[in-house]
C-alpha cells in the first residue's frame, strides 16, 4: 500500500469535542501529521458530536482523531460513533487521545475507537498508527462503493436538467 499512499494524501480530521479549551496537544498533533505529509482539517475547540460527524462527512476524511481532556469522553464518544453509523460512515478510522482513564479503555475500544493516545505518546507512534490503520480500500485510486446514506441529505435539488446525449 505504500505506493498508493503516496498518490493519495491521507486526510485526517483533528477534533476537540467537549468544553475544555486546551488544544495545545491537538495542535501539536495536527502539525506532526502535516509534517508527515497528511492533510489535516482542524475544527477548533468546543465541537459537538454532530459538528464532528458533519465535518467528517463533508471533508470525506480517512481518519478522525478526537482529543479530549475534560473527562466527558464516555458521553461524547458513543454519540459520535452512533452518528457516524447512522450516516453510513463505516470506513473511517476513529482514534482518540488525551486523558482517557485505563478503566475506560476497553469500553472505548468496544465502540470501535482505536489508538487511545495518552500523555507521553511519541508523535511518531501516532503517525505510524494512522498510516497502518487507515482503510486500505479508501487509499486505493478506486474508492470503495459508498454505503447508502440515511437521513443525511440536504434539500433535494429541483428536477435536474436534461441529460447530455
Amino acid at each position: 500500500m505504500a505506493e498508493t499512499n503516496e498518490q493519495r494524501k491521507i486526510r485526517v480530521l483533528v477534533a476537540k469535542p467537549g468544553l475544555d479549551g486546551h488544544d495545545r496537544g491537538a495542535k501539536v498533533i495536527a502539525r506532526a501529521l502535516r509534517d508527515a505529509g497528511m492533510e489535516v482539517i482542524y475544527t477548533g475547540i468546543r465541537q459537538t458530536p454532530p459538528m464532528i460527524v458533519e465535518a467528517a462527512i463533508q471533508e470525506d476524511v480517512d481518519a478522525i482523531l478526537m482529543s479530549i481532556l475534560s473527562g466527558a469522553h464516555m458521553a461524547i464518544f458513543p454519540k459520535v460513533m452512533e452518528l457516524l453509523h447512522e450516516n453510513g460512515v463505516h470506513d473511517v478510522l476513529v482514534m482518540a487521545g488525551g486523558i482517557l482513564p485505563d478503566e475506560d479503555i476497553p469500553a472505548i475500544e468496544a465502540m470501535g475507537i482505536k489508538g487511545n493516545f495518552g500523555p507521553g505518546t511519541p508523535l511518531s507512534a501516532i503517525i505510524d498508527f494512522v498510516r497502518a490503520n487507515v482503510s486500505p480500500e479508501r487509499m486505493s485510486q478506486e474508492l470503495p462503493p459508498l454505503a447508502p446514506t440515511a437521513g443525511a441529505s440536504f434539500e433535494a435539488t429541483p428536477a435536474p436538467a436534461k441529460e447530455a446525449q
Binding site: Q58, E59, D60, L146, T149, F154, E155, T157, P160
Partner: peptide, 12 residues
C-alpha cells in the same frame, strides 16, 4: 445521489 441531494456522495 449527488444530484438527489446526498451530502456524502457530494463529498465522495
Amino acid at each position: 445521489r449527488l444530484i438527489a441531494g446526498d451530502r456524502r456522495a457530494l463529498a465522495r
